[in-house]
């Protein structure tokens, strides 16, 4: 497929989804929002893609919804009312049930709605020039979904502080790393994509089926208490029993060769 506001690339086993409205700091208009749904699905369904990296063209990763579109055509936020009320949205990998590992690689600014792709990725890394802030309340908007997702995954106070301080304070990559919001800082920033590709290729050495089941178990755990999450996790764990990768993994290890995994 071709896209106007996104770039989709493939490098070896790694699929790339790149925000491509650099002049608008990759802000998301309604057309881009629709394209996200297709792009995640395209990469998810491509058997050659084992891992997906999400980043942005230009200086910044993502700066939320395109407010010029919202302000400019009289429709405003009403265009999103129905989908938000039903929480029937499709612009992140989590929304789209992508069970391949997703790495978000934050370049430059990630603010407001940009946090959707931090909250909904499995692994988040950032360039050393990355900056995080959430301006919603400073422009009279509520932040909900992105912050709720983050709170499930990291210390809550830091999320609340960003939500309430709005545009008047930015979090740098060091603090994001300390808090576990990101797992790696790439310095110099120009090496962000190279490093993301490297992590992607490393992850692609692991069993795709086992990773998909693991991802389901972990994300399921955000929906349930500990014991219930483990009981649900047991189903995903047992789903791999008898799968060829379970014999291939130990065999390859014993024979000191790369495993030949089943494609999913």
């Amino acid at each position: 497929m071709s896209y106007e506001h996104l770039a989709v690339e493939r490098h070896g086993p790694v699929g790339w989804l790149i925000n491509d409205r650099p002049d608008l700091r990759n802000a998301m208009n309604s057309a881009m929002r629709d394209e996200f749904a297709d792009a995640w699905t395209e990469l998810n369904e491509d058997p050659a893609v084992r891992v997906i990296v999400h980043t942005g063209n230009g200086r910044d990763f993502q700066t939320g919804v395109d407010v010029t579109e919202i302000a400019g055509d009289g429709v405003g936020f009403e265009r999103y009312r129905e989908s938000m009320e039903d929480f029937d949205v499709h612009f992140t990998s989590w929304h789209q049930d992508v069970w391949k590992p997703v790495i978000t690689a934050v370049n430059g600014i990630c603010c407001g709605g940009g946090f959707h792709w931090v909250a909904d990725a499995d692994i988040v890394i950032a360039a050393s020039d990355a900056q995080f802030f959430d301006p919603h309340v400073s422009v009279g908007q509520v932040v909900a979904i992105e912050a709720i997702g983050l709170m499930k995954k990291m210390p809550v106070e830091a999320v609340m502080r960003m939500a309430f301080i709005g545009k008047y304070e930015r979090m740098g990559p060091e603090r994001a790393y300390e808090l576990g919001m990101i797992s790696e800082i790439v310095d110099p920033p120009e090496q962000l994509r190279e490093r993301a590709q490297e992590i992607g290729e490393t992850i692609a050495k692991n069993s795709p089926a086992a990773m998909a089941a693991t991802k389901k178990a972990l994300w399921g755990a955000l929906e349930a208490g500990l014991t219930d999450a483990c009981k649900e996790g047991a189903k995903h764990l047992v789903s791999m029993w008898g799968h060829p990768d379970q014999t291939e993994g130990p065999a390859a290890f014993a024979e000191k060769r790369d495993p030949d995994w089943e494609t999913i």
Binding site: S207, A209, C230, G233, H236, Q246
Partner: peptide, 12 residues
């Protein structure tokens, strides 16, 4: 996952 197994209880 490197040996074809699911990680569940421990990481949950």
């Amino acid at each position: 996952v490197s040996v074809g197994q699911v990680s569940a209880f421990e990481t949950i």
